[in-house]
């Protein structure tokens, strides 16, 4: 595992939560995600990576936390089924992936438009040949999870 190449994603995540929400997320040790594990989250925002590497950046949250963060962005209460939640989670993962590119400028990386997967214990179709690194984050409102896979960059 090349920790130097995970750092831009951690820094981008901390920066996005600081700038967008005024929050300072804490993060726990990165670990190798077992792809068959059940996903304990309600919503995931996914960005595909192309260019010099193939991979993915995923932010996963509980529905309650996603609604609470969306409420901060729109400046009012948000119900769990509000379509603004999809918009907000997509924008969060988009900004994290885009901001992380600054720390990986030796590679020419392209990011896709975000896609959203919803539902309790939803599954993500991970690429088979790309190891996924998981990083748990914690903010006062709850926990969320960042998953990153970059072929031949983060893991060989």
């Amino acid at each position: 595992m090349n920790i130097n190449h995970i750092e831009p994603f951690i820094e981008a995540t901390v920066g996005v939560f600081r700038e967008l929400f005024g929050l300072e997320p804490e993060y726990l040790n990165p670990y190798l995600v077992q792809k068959d594990d059940r996903n304990e989250w309600d919503i995931s925002g996914i960005i595909g990576i192309g260019g010099d590497s193939k991979g993915v950046v995923v932010v996963s949250l509980s529905g309650q936390l996603a609604a609470a963060l969306t409420a901060k962005l729109v400046g009012g209460p948000v119900q769990l089924d509000d379509p603004d939640i999809v918009d907000a989670v997509g924008e969060i993962v988009n900004i994290i992936a885009g901001n992380a590119k600054k720390g990986l400028e030796q590679y020419r990386l392209e990011i896709s438009l975000p896609t959203i997967v919803k539902g309790p214990d939803h599954r993500i179709a991970w690429q088979q040949n790309v190891p996924i690194i998981g990083i748990p984050f914690k903010i006062p409102m709850g926990r969320f999870h960042l998953s990153i896979g970059l072929e031949n960059i983060i893991t060989g």
Partner: peptide, 9 residues
């Protein structure tokens, strides 16, 4: 106004 932060972008 974009998330694209790399200098080459």
């Amino acid at each position: 106004i974009t998330s694209e932060s790399a200098k080459y972008s």
